[in-house]
Amino acid sequence: MIIDCAVHPVLSSERFNKFVGGPWNLRQLPTLFGEKYGAPFDQLAVPADEASSPAAVANCLRGAKIDYAVLSPTTFGYWPNPHQGVAVAQAANNMLAEDWLNAPEADGRFLGSIRVPMNDVDAALGEIERWADDPRFVQIVVPARGLATYGDQRFFPIWRTAAERGLAIFIHDDLSAVVEPPPTQVGFPSFYAEIHALRPLSGIVHLTSFIVSGVFERLPDLRVVLGDVSVHEARALAIRTDKDWQSDRIEVPWMTKEPTAYLERHVRFVSQPEDEISPHSLRSTGTLGGDNSSLVIFGSRHPYWDGVNADEVFPKWSGEERARCLGGNAVQFYPRLAALN
């Protein structure tokens, strides 16, 4: 079985404006995908009308022998107007359910992600409740470029609800946001090539925050998927955190295990270009950390130009390891995917 955990349907602006309603549609909304740092080429690997067509995407997945695809449309991160933020999240969810999950061409292959407004936790909880009874929604998607670290107490009710309802959390870099801090601690990169390479940064910050602030300790059932961080980056950081862990414990006494132990239990990583840290790695082990093949889940990042196909990932790993990445890990990890088997 192949499960594609990162497919990003493009919500076409014209149609989205119908869903979002007034007054938000009285003027043109910013396009819901894309990077403010413009690449000198089209970021879509397929024609725009195919990226926003459920039938075309379904056809593409069928061609790639994908059994299930988890869809997470981008919605431009944080919206400064909290009412608009709620309207955008609701519209994205309505449109995803109506146009995509219900699409006859999808043939039941499409699974959904619940968009939530992160600047209004109560509204986020309301939005989760609105969709959580629909088993096709398997996760909640939150923007990697947040305005605060996700271990922060204010977000905890969202994570608790996710854990209780069997929804995974997908932290995804929306490429850009309506409002956001500088993309790095040292300000603004100059080039698209820079910001494209630095995409894992925000996810790494949230991962560390989740571990250290005790969210995983408090919610043993919470599952987090990082969309833009490779297992190697995360391992390197966790090993670094492990190293000084006995010294730092006094500040965060709720942590009872080594940081790496939380990572291995609670977090999975969508396949990234740097997964094969050496093009000659024959195995998932022996590079960095332990058995990495159990922590990576396949995500094509369709329709973006920097995505991968299922037959291109880990070409030198054993069949068993590749099968885990392509489907087994996801089935085991997402509480709602387990029910598909």
Binding site: Q153, F156, G214, R218, I250, E251, P253, W254
Partner: peptide
């Protein structure tokens, strides 16, 4: 001495 987590309130952690 040292710190000890207080998890008696499930809404938040203390020490």
């Amino acid at each position: 001495g040292t710190t000890e987590a207080d998890a008696t309130d499930e809404e938040r952690v203390g020490m």
